[in-house]
């Protein structure tokens, strides 16, 4: 299972970098999204792929019954997804406005700030 996840993570990173190297800014954003997802999956994998119940404490007990999955890795991913969602929303607004201003979906035409 671990090695399969490792391959998926690697594939996602590769796809993300390929997309980011394209000239189109829309593809750039898609690449950024894939990169975030790859990082999340990496946390998930390296946090340990254990099968276990959700770490919920039943009523009246002091600790969960039986083995539970590590909740921290999942909490980290959830937080990262939330943040990624906010950043992605911003990036979409940004490329929309950049498209309006520049009039092209092409990185090669964005040379105003080059030095």
């Amino acid at each position: 299972m671990e090695s399969m996840m490792a391959l998926v993570v690697g594939g996602l990173y590769a796809a993300a970098i390929y997309m980011m190297l394209r000239r189109s800014i829309v593809k750039l954003v898609i690449g950024l999204v894939l990169l975030g997802n790859a990082a999340n999956l990496l946390i998930f994998t390296s946090g340990g792929l254990t099968r276990g119940a959700p770490p919920l404490v039943p009523d009246g007990a002091a600790m969960p019954a039986g083995a539970v999955a590590d909740p921290l890795a999942q909490a980290l991913i959830l937080t990262a997804i939330v943040i990624g969602f906010g950043v992605l929303a911003f990036a979409v607004v940004l490329i929309h406005r950049a498209y309006e201003v520049v009039g092209a979906d092409d990185m090669d035409r964005m040379k105003d700030t080059d030095t």
Partner: peptide
């Protein structure tokens, strides 16, 4: 609040008359 701010911003940008059309640019 934040999701609606973003969605409304995008929707309003879409409706503005001076926004560039998708074809011919």
């Amino acid at each position: 609040g934040s999701v609606m701010t973003i969605v409304l911003t995008l929707a309003e940008a879409e409706e503005r008359p001076d926004a560039p059309s998708n074809e011919g640019d």
